[in-house]
């Protein structure tokens, strides 16, 4: 019986469900570029409603990936969002997994035989 070659796990397995969701990936990307971002700025940047953004923020906050700081600007309540160290690492890992996936898909496409030039 031939020994099975150990294969590297598929890069898709490295994708994190919490982070990979489209809006959450966008939130983490914006926050990774700044120290803090105002709730309303993030909402406008991603084209979301307050409720929708809140839902995703809660998930990310529960996962320890971001921190919400509530305060006031003048007399108006204002929420500032900040990426945690864990959040930064999670985004880095997600982007690395996506890049690996792109490479893998590209290699697979290159290795496929061209049926038009194949033998008759």
């Amino acid at each position: 019986m031939a020994e099975q070659q150990p294969t590297a796990p598929h890069p898709a397995l490295a994708l994190d469900d919490t982070v990979h969701q489209r809006v959450r990936l966008g939130i983490l990307t914006v926050l990774s570029e700044v120290r803090e971002c105002r709730f309303a700025t993030l909402r406008d940047e991603l084209g979301l409603t307050d409720g929708n953004l809140n839902r995703h923020l809660r998930i990310l906050e529960e996962a320890g990936l971001l921190q919400a700081i509530k305060g006031y600007e003048g007399r108006r309540p204002c929420t500032w969002l900040r990426l945690t160290r864990q959040g930064r690492a999670a985004l880095r890992a997600e982007v690395a997994a996506l890049e690996q996936l792109v490479r893998r898909l590209r290699d697979t496409t290159t290795d496929e035989p061209d049926v038009r030039t194949g033998p008759d």
Binding site: R22, V23, G26, V30, S32, L98
Partner: peptide, 28 residues
């Protein structure tokens, strides 16, 4: 943002890069 959930990873990465560039230009 368009949905990268069901999009090729290359498109997702390209979109993230655009978002990052835009935020960086504004923030910095």
């Amino acid at each position: 943002m368009a949905s990268p959930d069901h999009r090729p990873p290359a498109d997702t990465l390209a979109e993230l890069t655009r978002l990052r560039r835009r935020t960086r230009a504004n923030a910095h």
